[in-house]
Design a protein around this nucleic acid. Sequence first.
DNA 1: GATGGTTATGTTATAACATAACATTCATTG
DNA 2: CAATGAATGTTATGTTATAACATAACCATC
Lengths: 128, 128
Amino acid sequence: MIRLTSNQRKVFEALEQAGKPIGAYAILEQTGFRGAIQVYRALEKLIDLGLAKKLESLHAYICVSQKAEIAPTAFAICDHCGHIHQLKEVREVRQLHECLAQMDFEVCRSVIEIHGACSTCASRKRNK
Amino acid sequence: MIRLTSNQRKVFEALEQAGKPIGAYAILEQTGFRGAIQVYRALEKLIDLGLAKKLESLHAYICVSQKAEIAPTAFAICDHCGHIHQLKEVREVRQLHECLAQMDFEVCRSVIEIHGACSTCASRKRNK
DNA sequence: GATGGTTATGTTATAACATAACATTCATTG
DNA sequence: CAATGAATGTTATGTTATAACATAACCATC
């Protein structure tokens, strides 16, 4: 088990409780830290450990579904209800990495965020 | 041929000249606009038209290699030299979208940015 | 060519996100 | 205990992005 510091634990709990991506300043409020830097420092560590991820296109952070998952993840982001679907170990992502490897590109970080409408919201749209 | 407004043309030319991703405030300097909003408004339109793209993980903008390409693009971003490889019409990306479609997820925007080392920088790293 | 509607642009202020720089506290172990 | 290093705190500031409202340019049609 990984040993988190006090601040890291507070940030992780805030992410868990939210259950959806939240911004660093929302975390700041929830944790009661005095400055944003505390949040960012903790987030950096959590991301390193694979416990959290930044959603670049939302400027927000989310805790990763399973523990310590460094493997590249694709996110399906519903722009209507905000629901996030985490797609880990997706064949297509692995293949994309392989494709890049064949071009001699050495992958170190993968940002894959697909926006759209989740099944619920999509059907709701169709029926109105 | 698409008709751009004066501001849109200036921003597009700044992007073309740069030949790499640049931030909105760099564009602001180059164009001489008085405020950032002019840049963002022009960028929004250029992105709509498929002439430019935002690289979310860099907070920067780049003009797209071919004209009016709305199709999803994957970007391979070299973190060493800054070189950007635009991958259009990549099979793996299409397959990822199909995979999501089967889950009833209706894709509308695709953010795919793979960071790492390009072939040149990767070999340079190995040889030192 | 005046009228009114639409689109584009300008201006100012501020929101939202992120980091720099340095001070202090705290735990550990030699 | 003293020295060290890691974590945290504090303040300030940098960077990215948008809100809100004012003005100008364009253009059709009467």
